[in-house]
Design a protein around this nucleic acid. Sequence first.
DNA 1: CCAAAAAGAATGAATATTCATTTATATTTG
DNA 2: CAAATATAAATGAATATTCATTCTTTTTGG
Lengths: 188, 188
Amino acid sequence: MEAIFQSALAMIVEEGFEGLSMQKLAKTAGVSPATIYIYFKDKEDMLLQLHKREKERYFACVLEGFDPEMDFATGLAVQWKNRARYIIDHPDRGHFLEHFNFTPLLCKSMKTQNPKFSAIMHRFVSKAIENNELVTMPFEVYWSVAFAPLYNLVRYHKAGMNLNGEKFELTDTMLMQTLSLVLKALRP
Amino acid sequence: MEAIFQSALAMIVEEGFEGLSMQKLAKTAGVSPATIYIYFKDKEDMLLQLHKREKERYFACVLEGFDPEMDFATGLAVQWKNRARYIIDHPDRGHFLEHFNFTPLLCKSMKTQNPKFSAIMHRFVSKAIENNELVTMPFEVYWSVAFAPLYNLVRYHKAGMNLNGEKFELTDTMLMQTLSLVLKALRP
DNA sequence: CCAAAAAGAATGAATATTCATTTATATTTG
DNA sequence: CAAATATAAATGAATATTCATTCTTTTTGG
């Protein structure tokens, strides 16, 4: 089961969802094709379970050392570090999670959405607005300004180059510089 | 040829790259499978040409009414409006372009990268830094702060809902509010 | 009437899934 | 405690279908 998940994730990252076949997967995971169907109803079920598992792993990491009652700048910094660390240390897992968002399977995975995680994030934001640590704005605007730049930087890092093909490596300094720009945007 | 491109793009958006087969594509486009192979060497070639074409269309739209010699705030606003308009008016094309970035085909498409577009963007940025309209920072940091929030907001809009499943529609006001936050981050 | 464009049928390989069996593990019985 | 039996886990081979691609034939515009 663990072997199946690991092989599936690696195959998807290397060859895309169109490169994942159940027989190849079985071979790579060192099991018989039939064995996969003991654990999973079908291919779709396997992918949905894999996605669920990866999302949970990721959310758990994002929340490490985080408390929604933290002051805004501190809490945001903790999240930036957690998110960046996870994706840089596990590029395949990050790639899979992002790629999945463009897949038709995504809508079938929505029901699996963890409401607890979401609640914590909302609590953090509304509390920050109340305390005048954050300009008043819709949650979606907040999230986009607060985290999209981070994900984009990490994507550059994973590609190992920028749009010109020049080499690019994300340093800790650069990450912190970007975070401070984001804070400048968000704070009153 | 046009019909083939359109059908391919629609199929990929609806069913993912794994849902695109040459026979289904031929049927949808109203041609024989053999006809596709008159215009394209093989499936990969077809996808690469489709991507190239979509990228060019998109870049052309982004540059409409834009001049790198514009002052920073104006130029950024033009780009925001162009980018947002294109993706909102053509959600499938936007989805395809973003999805493609997670595909193994991406690296084979890199050679096709338009150096002219890139050059204009760099000119705009370095000129803005010279003129003290923009904090000094690596290009990648700039791009991530300047545009990633926009793309993320538009993604929310396309999904039609936020992470909680509540309804979400991106208004022009919200877009401009986000742009002003981004400008606050980027300007000295 | 010919050359280019398109068609349809055909090919072999690969696909998801299932079937009948075997192997290993636990539970019950004498 | 050992033999018998039930339960579960895993297998390799087989199924029908779909896949990318090509071959031969037909259509069509100049």
